[in-house]
Nucleic acid binder design. Sequence first.
DNA 1: TAGAGCCTGGACAACGTTGTCAGGCTCAGG
DNA 2: CCTGAGCCTGACAACGTTGTCCAGGCTCTA
Lengths: 349, 349
Amino acid sequence: MPETPRRTHRLSGSRYGNRPTMKDVAARAGVGLKTVSRVVNGEPGVTPETERRVQESIEALGFRRNDSARVLRKGRTASVGLVLEDLADPFYGPLSRAVEEVARAHGALLINGSSAEDADREQELVLALCARRVDGLVVIPAGDDHRYLEPELRAGVATVFVDRPAGRIDADVVVSDNYGGARDGVAHLIAHGHRRIGFIGDMPGIHTASERLRGYRAAMEDAGIPVEDAWMSLGVTDPERVRRATEEMLSRPDPVTAVFTGNNRVTVTVIRVLSERSRPVALVGFDDIELADLLRPGLTVVAQDSAALGRTAAERLFRQLDGTLLAPERIELPTKLITRGSGELPPAD
Amino acid sequence: MPETPRRTHRLSGSRYGNRPTMKDVAARAGVGLKTVSRVVNGEPGVTPETERRVQESIEALGFRRNDSARVLRKGRTASVGLVLEDLADPFYGPLSRAVEEVARAHGALLINGSSAEDADREQELVLALCARRVDGLVVIPAGDDHRYLEPELRAGVATVFVDRPAGRIDADVVVSDNYGGARDGVAHLIAHGHRRIGFIGDMPGIHTASERLRGYRAAMEDAGIPVEDAWMSLGVTDPERVRRATEEMLSRPDPVTAVFTGNNRVTVTVIRVLSERSRPVALVGFDDIELADLLRPGLTVVAQDSAALGRTAAERLFRQLDGTLLAPERIELPTKLITRGSGELPPAD
DNA sequence: TAGAGCCTGGACAACGTTGTCAGGCTCAGG
DNA sequence: CCTGAGCCTGACAACGTTGTCCAGGCTCTA
C-alpha cells in the first residue's frame, strides 16, 4: 500500500498529531496523569472538585482520548469489520446497516470494505482489518479458501461468514435457503402451467448461484420435466450478455414461456428485455427489488431478508465474543415467495 | 457505551490477544526485534538469508503486525471516517462506495457509521472516529452546529462535509445544486403546460429540502404563477402522511395537475398513490430511482450523482491531507434532468 | 489523643511498534 | 597487517494510555 511520505502542514509549524494528551490535561489541571484517566473513564475515586478542574482542562484544550493507545493497553478495539462485495449494491446496504446496529448496541464501531468480488482483495481487506485488531469479522466471501484466517481464529478473533459459506475452514455461517427458495420459485411457475422454464444465473462457482441452480433442477425434476441445456445460462451477469441470453431462449422454435432469474442484477435486465416484447413471458426473480410492486405486471420474487442475514450474523459474532458460543454452526434463513403478477402469468403457447 | 466486562474464553487458557508479537518472531528466528520490523515493513538492509528466516518465523507463528501500536508510534492511522444518515438508503450506497474507492487508492481504510438523521448520534459517532484518530472525516451532517469539531480541525484532521453544509464552522463542503435542480424540474413541468403544481418535501430545516423548496418557488415565480399554500406539503416524509398529503392536493376543487417530489422516499410513495388513480398526473422527482425507466409512464427525475459527490469529497479530503489544499471551499455539483415520461404528461384539466 | 481504616491521588511499568544510533563485521586498499 | 568505509544488526527510548500499587491525609472511634 502506498504511503504518503511528504506532508506539508495545514497549520503553522505544529506537527500533525500534536494534540493534547492526558499529560497536558493533567499539567494544566495540576493533577496527576492517572487522575485524568479516571475522569475520562468515569472511574470512581475522584473528588467532585478535582473532577471539575479536570473537565475544565479537557474542554479548554479540546482533548480527545487516543484510542490507539487505549487499544494497545486493553487488547480490545471495540470495532468489528465487515467485508462485502459492493456497498453500492442495494442488497448489501440493509445488511451492512443491520450489522452496524448490532455493533452499536454492543458499543462497537464498524469498519467495512468492498471486495469487489475478488478473492485477493478480500484477503487483503480481511488481513488489514486483523492488523487493526478488530474484535470480530463478518465476511461475505469472494474467495473459496479461507485458511489464511486460521491464525486469527486461533487467536480468538470472532468470525462469521454470511451469504456464502467459508472455504476450507470451520466457522460460523449464516446463509439464506438458496436451494429451497429457488425450488419454490420454479415450482410456482410450474404450478402455473409452465414446462419450458429458463434459468439465468451467475457462475456456478459462486455458492449462492450453484444452490439456486440446484433448486431449479430439483423443481423441474420433481415435476418430471427434463431440462434442456439451452434453457440454462450460467455465469452470465453483465447486462449485454444477459440480454442476449434471454433473447436466445425466447427465439427458439420451442421458446421458454417463463424465466427464473438467479439474482437481482440479472432480474432487472430481463425485465427490460421482456418489457420490449409483446408476447407475455412469466418471470420469477431471486432477491426482491424496490418498486417491484409498481411494475406492470408486478414482479414476483423469492425474497431474502438481507437485514436479517446481517443481524443474525452480527448477533452470533457478539455471542462468540461473550464466550457464550461453542461450536461453529451453519444457520439457514428462510426465503419468502412474494407473488405480484409476473410469476402468475400463464404460458403463452 | 456499554462495555462487556465478563468474558469467558473461546480457547483453552490463553488470553485473548495472546498473539505473537515481533518479539516472538524475533526470538524464534534468532534475530533482533528491529530486524523483524524491517522485514515486515520492507525496509532495506536485511540479508536475504536473514529475511528468509524471519519470513519463515512469521508464517509459522501466524504473526500479523499490530496496527494499533504502529499508529501510536507513527501518528497516522491510514483510515478515514464516513458518517452518513443511513447506509441502507440507496442514495448513500454508491456515495459510500465512492469514498471507499478513493480511500483505497490512498491506502486507507474506511470506517463508517449511520447517524440515523440524529444530531446527537452524529456527534457521538464523529467523536468516536476522532478518538480513533482517523486521518480524515467525510460527514453528511444531521445536525446544524459543528463547532464541536473545532479542536479536531485545529489538530489537522481533514474534514469535508457532503450533501449539506456544515453548521457554524468553516469547512469544505460538497453539495448538489439542489436549488437549480428543483427549479429546472419544476420549470420542466411548467413548460409542459402545468400551472397548479404541488410540492411535497422534507422539513425546511434540512438544508437540501429548503433549497429544493426555494427552487420550486423560483420556477413558479419566473413563470408568474402565484403559489398557493395548499400546494405545498413540508416536513412530511413517512409514507402514510405523504399519501394523505398527495390525496388532498388531488382532491381539491382546483386540483394540482402535477407534483414535484423533494426526495426519493417521497417520490416512491407518490408513485403508488398516482398509480391507483385513473386521471393522469404529471410527476417529477428529485433523486433518481432504480427501475425508474420500467415504470409506466417512466419516471422523470432530477438526478444527482451520489457517487460523484462521494468521490469529489474524498478526493478533496486527501488533498487536504497532502497539504495541497488551502482555504475551505464550497463545491456544487450539477444535477441532471432525466425525462422518461411522467414529467411530460400534459395537464388533465 | 492515638490508632485504624478509608478515600484520594500519583509514580511506575507495560502494551507492540518504529526511529535513532551505535557496534560489529567484511572487505578493499595501503 | 592495519585502517577505514560500508553494510547489517540490535539495544533502547518513545508513542499515550491503563492497571497496580503505595503514600499521605482525612475521619471516626475508643
